[in-house]
Nucleic acid binder design. Structure first.
Lengths: 253, 253
DNA sequence: ATGTCTTTGTGAACGCGTGCACAAAGATTG
DNA sequence: CAATCTTTGTGCACGCGTTCACAAAGACAT
């Protein structure tokens, strides 16, 4: 098991707050839409509405990038698109490797949004020997044994993990050893990585559970004093509780 | 276009902070793993490590749920699994409808993590008439025309949108009109929903762009005074700029 | 019973992110 | 050139979330 940090201490990267960085892609998307409609300039108010944020927040976000606006007029759309793209590093090509070509991995390989903004699916990797050579989204799947070579040859620095949870940490370790320094993890696992490696996770199950919480809360608001449901007898603090748990089996897996 | 709030003002739901709610599924997952290994009790330190968080944060999170630990011993695993499950509303069944059965939608329908924790894929909906009746993950795809009826009959309150961006808002409006109050949006679009409806978004493109930012930053750290790249001539503040933009076309779409 | 040892639960301080509100800047008009 | 109007950029205050550090609580040994 790899030992290392799991959380980056929110390093204020080059003075730009993490929260701002997370919103830049949102602004960029809205700006791109305006650009396609040949809109020359946009005010912070309009752009904020399009991006679904507060206009003051948007202005403060942009202020971290520099003074790119013109008072009394607004922001030059094309210019801003370029500045944000550059800031995000989207002016260069980012070869990406997807490891774990199951349903989700294949879907991502086919996903148009991937290739659209400078990201290029450079390799598909799977542990199943039977899949090797099979073309998915026009790219031949390669075997895990060659992972190291594939990463090096293609200069991949961003890896996407769509393996089953049991394989995720191992794949992660191998990716990192091969030189990958950014990982997008779709497996429901807490990845442990060494310092300097960034990990972002996308967890469908967690998102649903958060929604369920609010949903339950909304439903419970009607009943004034909702029935809390008889809590199951708590295991006696001392008596360790029998081996065959008589606790209600809530969740199998 | 629907008019309404886009952001919930972080309503401190029943006293449990939003940040804590977002971590509960993480704890639950770690606890479930311990439960399967028949571990009777766990300390905040151990559990925190497994979940990848600070132990003080974990204790404070649990303190919002009540005093479920035993000092000097730790937490009873089974009991805590039940309490968190109940708090998240996972003791009940949540029928989910997926709208937009393309690559991603089909992958989600097949995704095991969905069904595992009380969530059940109750319906698959697509706008393509040719898909109607086709079984995906053992469920027949139904046509968008029947959306309203499908939602009502199955008592769906959580909807998942995996349509192309252009259709997302319209689908969202229809889902909300049919009674859905929680939406998980995979389309790269800012959804506008009325008060009382929760929206969570999963955006692959945004995640990659955030990684690219940090990746670029890491790469740029080596070169002491990195070349900022000649900024393209800024559009003259007054002269509105020609219709055929001579700005470098950074991002096509 | 008394003491020791472990671990929880939480008060308090700190830092980040958000939003208000306004002065400064520039465009535009007469 | 002066006046007016629009919109940016930001100082400031507030609230949430995180983390430290420790007192209180209970288990366990003697």
């Amino acid at each position: 098991m790899a030992t290392g940090r799991t959380h980056r201490p929110a390093t204020r990267s080059r003075g730009i707050p993490e929260a701002t960085v997370a919103r830049l892609p949102l602004y960029l998307r809205a700006l791109t839409a305006l650009s396609e409609r040949s809109v020359p300039t946009v005010s912070s108010e309009e752009l904020a509405t399009a991006a679904g944020v507060n206009s003051a927040k948007l202005r403060k976000d942009f202020s971290y990038l520099g003074s790119y606006g013109t008072r009394g007029v607004g922001y030059d759309v094309e210019y801003l698109v370029y500045q944000i793209s550059r800031e995000l590093g989207l002016t260069q090509d980012w070869p990406v490797a997807i490891v774990g070509i199951g349903n989700l991995g294949a879907a991502l390989a086919n996903y148009g949004g991937f290739a659209s903004r400078g990201f290029r699916v450079a390799a598909l990797i799977d542990a199943d020997p039977a899949m090797a050579g099979t073309p998915v989204a026009g790219i031949a799947v390669q075997h895990t044994d060659d992972l190291d070579r594939i990463i090096s040859e293609n200069g991949v620095s961003i890896g996407v993990i769509t393996t089953p949870p049991g394989a995720a940490q191992q794949v992660c370790d191998r990716l990192v050893a091969a030189g990958v320094t950014s990982i997008l993890n779709f497996a429901p696992t807490v990845l442990s990585v060494p310092e300097g490696v960034d990990v972002r996770k996308v967890d469908l199950s967690i998102e649903l559970q958060i929604l369920a919480f609010h949903e339950q809360r909304k439903a419970g608001e009607d009943t004034t004093a909702e029935d809390e449901g008889a809590p199951p007898m708590r295991a006696t603090p001392t008596g360790r509780k029998g081996p065959d748990g008589d606790m209600p089996a809530v969740m199998p897996a």
